[in-house]
Design a protein around this nucleic acid. Structure first.
Lengths: 297, 297
DNA sequence: AGCACCTGTGAGTTTTACGCAACTATTGAA
DNA sequence: TTCAATAGTTGCGTAAAACTCACAGGTGCT
């Protein structure tokens, strides 16, 4: 089999010209000048060694050979167009499912979901709760939004959005009894934590320059929660002091339901968008762009 | 319908890679480097926004989307290849019929037909006699070889090969009675002519600087023939003096069967290859090249 | 570990296609 | 007949696409 196909761009020009019956019309469809199409047709004539079109008055008509060629090439291009548009639709019409831990979902994403859908309607976004806080497990989601610290596994692509900031938060009533200039004063309260973030309190204490001993003593009076979401609800309810990602308590701080008297500190973790291999890169990219923009404001 | 096809060269690279299961093999088939194919595949990934291939060990395998695309695109390219090779075969396998007046055919072309067929076997040459000496009538032949003088009609392409030379020829026996230095001496013989070339004798006489009166007198003793071929046979047989294209009597002059004591003169006519519109340009070109080469020697 | 084999990528180069504009040819109307 | 309008062709300079080369990185076999 000698697969010596003619130049494909010439074939495309031929197909369009034959179908539309005019060089100018074909050029219009292909978004080029009629001169460009004319050249392609000439090159095809030379390839086959025969004229495919012949002049008929002001326009062109197919020769015998041209008709024979068009009968097959027209079908082939129709199939090509069909297959490509089909795949494109499959890719673009499929809903984009974004997985997300419950806390992040409830406290940050859901309040912004309406605007996100309006900004990127072509995503047909669907959100699902990812049960584990760590997005390592490959799910059937198109992407996973979560906080996590490097290093990341190599079999997924990770788009970093912003550094994680954490802060110690508590209800205004509890805050009255504390001294904002002395971080250690919060140790008079019960320390709230979640199993998924055992390193949160030591991290915070170290960043504040507190002695390990003071922390260890305080850790005797703690309350654990299964999920970050419950932890924050508990903090709002005044059960104690919690360490929370600043992003998730931003709204509560603004409304005054929570206070963060000792500021916030950056951690090695990042808010990331995890992409399984072979996911739709363009849609993920547009989502990431929107998220970055949203996080900036 | 938005016909936004991806770049066709990228589709071709995809099709070949999917069919052969390897970038390197596809590159080999397409006569490019594997790097070139790799780029094309990447551009296609970006066009659709999804990966079409995924790495599997040392090679690649199609993703789900890739398979869907290949099922249609493979067929489309197969059809494209089929249609193009079909047309090419139609064009190249069809016998090339060369029309030619009987005299030229018998006295010049047929003796060279073997070598011509050996030199250009792909022409699958067939020769036919064109009944009229003038090739003006459009026949179903691929080309017509004949002597003719400009101007030529505009609806056919005419390739000029060599100027026509004519000479007065007669048998050696008749020549004895003539004086080579006095052209008028031939008028003692019977003048042979054909209806298709009524201007031959006046032309010759004028070129030799003979008086019109002498010619007119001689023209009273003439013998006509329907075809140039018979005319020349008659000259060989010693029936009289004939005007013949030098090309057609070359062999007879060499063998001594005919003499041309008064040399030859050029006429406005040319030996031409007439091509109807839309004939196979490449094959006609190769035939013309061979003819020119042959006429030179 | 070493080697053979396969694919991906950055840099520079060649090839191709294109736009522009001028030219030819045909048609239909003034 | 002349004139304007429509269509296709072509020379020339430029812009973009595709390619080669060389190297990097990964995989599987011995």
């Amino acid at each position: 089999m000698h697969h010596s196909l003619p130049p494909l761009s010439a074939l495309r020009a031929f197909e369009a010209t034959a179908r539309l019956g005019s060089v100018t019309a074909a050029a219009d469809e292909l978004s080029v000048t009629h001169g460009a199409v004319s050249r392609q047709l000439k090159s095809l004539d030379e390839h086959f060694g025969v004229a495919l079109f012949t002049k008929a008055g002001r326009g062109l008509v197919l020769t015998h050979h041209g008709e024979r060629l068009q009968s097959g090439v027209g079908d082939a291009f129709a199939k090509l167009r069909y297959s490509c548009t089909l795949l494109k639709h499959e890719v673009e019409e499929a809903p984009f499912t974004l997985a997300c831990p419950g806390s992040l979902l409830a406290r940050w994403l859901i309040p912004r979901l309406d605007r996100l859908n309006q900004a990127l309607p072509e995503l047909k976004l669907q959100v699902v709760v990812s049960d584990s806080e760590q997005p390592g497990t490959p799910s059937d989601a198109s992407a996973t939004l979560a906080f996590s610290a490097p290093p990341w596994p190599s079999d997924v692509e990770v788009i970093e959005l912003i550094p994680e900031e954490i802060c110690a938060v508590l209800s205004p009533r509890l805050a009255e009894a504390c001294d904002a200039s002395h971080p250690a004063s919060l140790f008079t309260n019960k320390l709230l934590y979640t199993a998924s973030r055992p390193q949160a309190w030591p991290q915070w204490a170290a960043a504040q320059g507190l002695e390990t001993a003071a922390l260890e003593k305080a850790l005797k009076q703690v309350q654990g929660f299964a999920h970050l979401y419950y932890l924050m609800e508990a903090a709002v309810a005044g059960l104690g002091v919690a360490i929370a990602p600043r992003l998730l308590v931003e709204d509560d701080l603004k409304s005054g339901r929570l206070l963060a008297p000792w500021g916030s500190i950056e951690t090695p973790a990042r808010l990331c968008l995890w992409l399984p291999k072979h996911t739709n890169a363009r849609r993920s990219e547009s989502l990431a762009t929107w998220l970055r923009e949203e996080l900036k404001g």
